[in-house]
């Protein structure tokens, strides 16, 4: 029922410089490790989101967690096991009609509801 349970998470072992996202329709086929490497040559459907741009949208990155067992495994067509925690959001990679996109889930709910404290 839950996509993220039972995963062996680890902190990204190097500085987060950005992340590749498969922005075109189709089957993303890569490893988690390549997603964080700006020097990797990816196909034209891939877009590099530099840390600076990412933080402009979602706030300062606090921690990046990845699936330790899938770090170097070639993966096709599944939800990438990546969690990016910023001060206010947990950002995951979701899919909308075949295209990958960021989904930023607010970590705190009280301020989301008008009139709440």
């Amino acid at each position: 029922m839950s996509e993220f349970k039972g995963i062996k998470w680890m902190l990204l072992s190097f500085e987060f410089k950005g992340i590749w996202l498969h922005a075109g329709y189709g089957d993303p086929f890569t490893t988690l490790s390549r997603r964080f490497d700006p020097t990797t040559l990816m196909g034209e459907a891939w877009v590099w989101y530099a840390r600076e741009m990412f933080e402009r949208f979602y706030g300062k990155v606090e921690a990046v967690l990845v699936d330790a067992d899938e770090w170097d495994r070639l993966i096709i067509y599944i939800t990438p096991h990546v969690l990016i925690y910023t001060k206010r959001y947990v950002v995951i990679i979701g899919d909308y009609d075949g295209y990958e996109r960021f989904i930023a889930v607010p970590r705190y709910y009280k301020k989301l509801v008008r009139g709440s404290r």
């Binding site: 029922m1 839950s2 996509e3 993220f4 349970k5 998470w9 680890m10 902190l11 606090e62 921690a63 967690l65 067509y77 599944i78 939800t79 969690l83 925690y85 947990v90 995951i92 979701g94 899919d95 909308y96 075949g98 989904i103 889930v105 607010p106 970590r107 705190y108 709910y109």
Partner: peptide
């Protein structure tokens, strides 16, 4: 929102599933 998790319903390749992410990433480790 549960005591520990933020649960969202997402779709990947047409299949819906629940994503439960801890509010505090330290819990995951």
């Amino acid at each position: 929102y549960t005591e520990k998790y933020i649960v969202t319903l997402v779709e990947y390749d047409g299949n819906e599933s629940f994503y439960a992410v801890p509010r505090d990433w330290r819990l995951l480790l």
